[in-house]
Design a protein around this nucleic acid. Sequence first.
DNA 1: GGTGAAATTGCAATCGATTGCAATAGTGTG
DNA 2: CACACTATTGCAATCGATTGCAATTTCACC
Lengths: 347, 347
Amino acid sequence: MAIKPAKTMTLSDIARLAGVSESTASRALRDNPVINAQTRQKVQQIAADHQFKVNATARSLRTQKSHTIAVIILFDAKTQQAITDPFLLDILGVIADELTHQGYDMLLSSSKTTDKDWRSYYFDSKRADGLIIIGQGEHDERVEQLSNAGVPFVVWGAASGNESFPVIGSDNRQGAQLAVSHLLSRGCKRIAFLGDIRHSEIEMRYLGYQDALQAASIKAEPALQLNTDFTAQAGYLQTQQVLFNQLATLDGIFAASDAIAMGAMKALLEHGIKVPQQVALVGFDDIAMSAYCTPSLTTVKQDTHAGGKLLVVQLLSRINGGKAASQLLPVKLIERQSSLRSHIIAT
Amino acid sequence: MAIKPAKTMTLSDIARLAGVSESTASRALRDNPVINAQTRQKVQQIAADHQFKVNATARSLRTQKSHTIAVIILFDAKTQQAITDPFLLDILGVIADELTHQGYDMLLSSSKTTDKDWRSYYFDSKRADGLIIIGQGEHDERVEQLSNAGVPFVVWGAASGNESFPVIGSDNRQGAQLAVSHLLSRGCKRIAFLGDIRHSEIEMRYLGYQDALQAASIKAEPALQLNTDFTAQAGYLQTQQVLFNQLATLDGIFAASDAIAMGAMKALLEHGIKVPQQVALVGFDDIAMSAYCTPSLTTVKQDTHAGGKLLVVQLLSRINGGKAASQLLPVKLIERQSSLRSHIIAT
DNA sequence: GGTGAAATTGCAATCGATTGCAATAGTGTG
DNA sequence: CACACTATTGCAATCGATTGCAATTTCACC
């Protein structure tokens, strides 16, 4: 049975019990070597006995550091969809772990919070020492403003190469290029692109799609690029639409996310179209379910572990006066059944 | 172009600019009616002009309230799997929104943080005013301890009815009963249960499974209850195992989560077993992908929206001196293809 | 004009920990 | 024994906002 602590203890209580001043107690607790080892030991013992914990608020006020990072998840105003995206959650977990590891707390903003002015709310008010911004961002002018305001922050997304703030993200263009080249090498001739190119990351994927087509001397057909939100439902509906529109000679689909791909797959199978024999399919993200749908989904895997860690490391470096650099992370093609058909050399 | 604020302003700066005392300024900013309306107006204007934001740390210290709730996600020590579970993330999103709505910030603990003593770390240190604990908890003695320590907290999980703290959760037993009755009504005779009954929520689902069998005068076979972690992979492997073990007369599977169900489905389809004709399948959670796999997955939907909101509302009520009550939320069976076969009346 | 009540505003203490600087004690040396 | 130095410890200011209580001003009314 735990002893019920009568009331929250303060540093001054501990100091009194140990028979030392508050300053000595404070230093002893932080293991400051200027304090005699025995004194330190004694104070620490007393603090432990009484389950004393430093008041984080008071410490923050005095030291002017919150030791807290705000993670802001941008979301699409149309679909309201963000925090439920499996991929985002993956990287969120990594960030949480890494922040903890570095001794920081994580303040998570919800979609609604995002309506506020983050700088004021999180930084000016001293709630957080820095910001990590995640989102399949359409270009957001709020992010630009941050960089003019001296707020330490990093962004997960698509680095165009010339933004004034650090961006960490996967090499989306390369990933898409891998995916589409793979489809081409499997004999696909007409490949649709499902994804909303108004999002900068998706735009990069579309560029990679074009790269691959061009390398195979195929002209990209604008009609085959179909803006599609990040949901399985959108993928499903969009694919039905495509079928309805008689784009019947389609033999490949590259979806900008696995969720979209699964929606597309559903639509294809429902119409009796064989995957991958008639239409081969590749997604992006490698979410947990991709390996377990039928047929399993070929996809492009992002290195969320490296990404999350890098975001944290770069941000903390920036906070501690250093520089934070943008970085492009390599991706990997995971071949599964949805694109597995006899290898045909393209003409 | 934004005006770069030279330096963070403090209340005393605003007071000086407005020609009033700090106390008046403070009251004016909080719209305290005791302050003359014109004075209030003026102070607020000046604060707005200078983008002044109250220092949250100082306020917290003085008011002894952090206006922050820590959300702790328990996870299975074995699988390390928690934050990636789609269902948890669903409810997390709802909680985040509701907290924001109520003017609270959300501190999210990662798996590693969970090693610490939450009470000390979050509550004693005044980082948070209360705790929300989420997890497919095996019975965790740390939770019990919390309730003896006067910490305001609520738990998402399985209410056994006699715990000393408020638990919000779905009616798992009822949900399972619905699912299994449904399978029975579809003519299934031998139904396996995939899920780890050492988790209290899953235990309730297992009880519901038994309820349904009993109502149909079928004896539950212990050999058909297979402890399975919350992953698609576990469902896949466990199902292969079952098949390997010649439990060939199996004609139904109730999986304790959709992820498990999808793993199971994969294993069945790979072995050429038709779903639902030979084996019908029902999951639990209704994650986003359930509707889009093939065949789509019949499942039990939890009311995450109500759940998340209730967790927040109950906790805040508790923090404000009220009582927080446990509550069991109704669930709903979503019938899809994985159990869709000709209706056969059980003998 | 006087008087009490109401409306405003300011003083100063307070929340709890950290830290620069001063003070004291202890040690060694010539 | 005096002096210089180092090792320890404590004093008091400080971080920025909030709030009980007192002080001052304003009014209404007799």
